[in-house]
Structure formats: C-alpha cells, structure tokens
Amino acid sequence: MLNIFTVFETEMKVKRPIDDQLILDIADGNADALHTLYEASSESVYGFALSITKNSHDAEDVLQETYLTVYQKAVDYKPSGKPMAWVFTIAKNFALAKLKSKSRIRLLDDGDTELGVTFAEIENVEQRLVIQTAFRILNDEERQILMLHAISGLKHREIAAIMEMSLNTVLSKYHRAIKKMRSELA
C-alpha cells in the first residue's frame, strides 16, 4: 500500500501524494521529496527485493541502490502518472542483477538457492510464520506477485506490467499463491 499512515481520531496529517510532481521535485535535487517517496515506498521496495533475492543483505543493498538511482535518474523520468511502477522497475533490475551475480558464484558450490534470511527479527509469531511460509512453499514468481500485492497494494494489472507478464498470468499465479498459503496455514 502506498503512502500508508495511521490516523487516530480525527486528526489527519496532510501528506503529499506519490505522483509525477514528487519525482520532478526529486529531479530538482529535493532530498525531502526523496524522503517522502522513501517513507511511502521503502517497505514495498524492500519486500519486493527480498522476494527476488531471498537474502536480507541483498534486499538492503537493493533498497539503497534503488533510491540512489531514483535520485540520480529522476531527471530522466518521463511523467506517466506511474511513479511507483518506475521505482519498482529500478528495484527489480537491481535485484535481478544481484541474483545473477550470485548465481554465477553459486555455480562453484553446489548449493541450491538457500535462504539468506531468517526472519528472526520479526517478533510477532503469526507474521513470522506467514512470511516464512511464503518463502518456503511459493515459487519465485508466486512469491514476488504475492509480496507486491500484499505490501505495495498495486493492482494486478500494474503488477503484470512490472513483472512483464500478462494480466491473466499474474492473476492465476496470485491465486495459486493464495491457495497454497491458505492450505498451508489452515
């Protein structure tokens, strides 16, 4: 979900939306604008990166590289009304590059794609169980789609664009993921 913030009682903080203008401000070198974007999207970016790299250190690197690149490349952003899709695409490229450089190394030892993340920092048992399950039973695409949907709140068709899949493919993978998760967690 983009730009989530909790409002108790009537007071509502006015927060600027994540839109093209925000990216244009970042392009002007406005670090506050970058911070706004970061606050609104870092969890989604991290979650997405984690779902690809399956490694918390890598996900952290991707997180940093993504926002550094956003800051650097905001001048090249073509206003399209889809700033988040742009950010995710950058994150995806970095995550895939990470994965690729790793897989090259991995050829040397025989190991399968072992998990580089323990989720030990998550105190809530239920949350930990759910995310561990997602990483244990889902295949890469199912996990990436589910994470994108769960954390970013992007629509399926937006996810389809980011994942470079057809809407139908995304939908069926998403439902398969949910079904697997539900039966595992039943």
Binding site: M1, H35, Y38, S42, E43, Y46, G47, L50, S56, A59, E60, L63, Q64, Y67, F119, E121, I122, E123, N124, E126, Q127, R128, L129, V130, I131, A134, L146, M147, H149, A150, I151, I178, M181, R182, L185
Partner: peptide, 18 residues
Amino acid sequence: IEKNLAAAVSHMVPEDAF
C-alpha cells in the same frame, strides 16, 4: 495473509537505511 506479510516486512527494513 497479506496483512501479515506486509507487517512482517515492515519490521525488516533497517531503520537507518535512509
């Protein structure tokens, strides 16, 4: 499921990353 996933990840993002 989705809520738990989102909440789990929110605990994982390093605080000093920005």
